[in-house]
């Protein structure tokens, strides 16, 4: 997670995910998950293009089209607050305020240690437990200010 992937490691991930055009999203998501900065850099995009016998432009088009694929470095934990209507009207805007207070940064800015940032995301399909925060593949629901505090503490500890 914390060190840069070598070309061999990246190639292994591409091969594990099928190494064909149909699997490009799985491949890019897997590379992103394994990357140090939580994103796919230009070098990685070039490698994917080579392995899939396509062009860098085409891979970049995919990377930029899909919002879960990042092309710029990210904080270690990006807290995604759902702000679609069902969550928004069950107080997801308050969650955003709590995060701003707890982390001491504005939405979209990383903390100085690079550990956290937060942003809005469209519906993650957990409206029955809104307001929610999604961190990587996990969704935390029925949030209160205390639960948000606890989540941040737990993430800090697990780092």
């Amino acid at each position: 997670m914390s060190k840069l992937l070598s070309e061999t490691e990246k190639t292994t991930i591409i091969d594990q995910n099928g190494s064909r055009q149909e699997n490009i999203l799985n491949i890019l998501l897997a590379l992103q998950e394994a990357s140090a900065g939580g994103y796919v850099d230009q070098e990685t995009i070039a490698l994917v293009a080579k392995k899939l016998s396509t062009t860098e432009t085409k891979v970049f088009e995919i990377a930029s089209f899909y919002s879960m694929i990042e092309t710029k470095p990210q904080a270690a934990y990006v807290l995604e607050v759902c702000n679609s209507a069902p969550c928004h009207f069950t107080k997801s805007d308050e969650v955003s305020g709590w995060l701003e207070a707890e982390l001491g940064v504005k939405r979209g800015e990383p903390t100085s240690d690079g550990l956290f940032s937060f942003r809005f995301t469209p519906c993650v399909g957990a409206c029955d437990v809104g307001p929610v925060i999604k961190v990587k593949d996990a969704v935390y629901g029925d949030l209160s200010r205390d639960k948000v505090k606890e989540l941040i503490q737990n993430l800090k500890k697990s780092k």
């Binding site: 679609s84 209507a85 069902p86 469209p122 519906c123 399909g125 957990a126 409206c127």
Partner: peptide, 11 residues
Amino acid sequence: DEGEPGTFKDK
């Protein structure tokens, strides 16, 4: 691709 906000049944 269940993405309609307010929908979480396919899940």
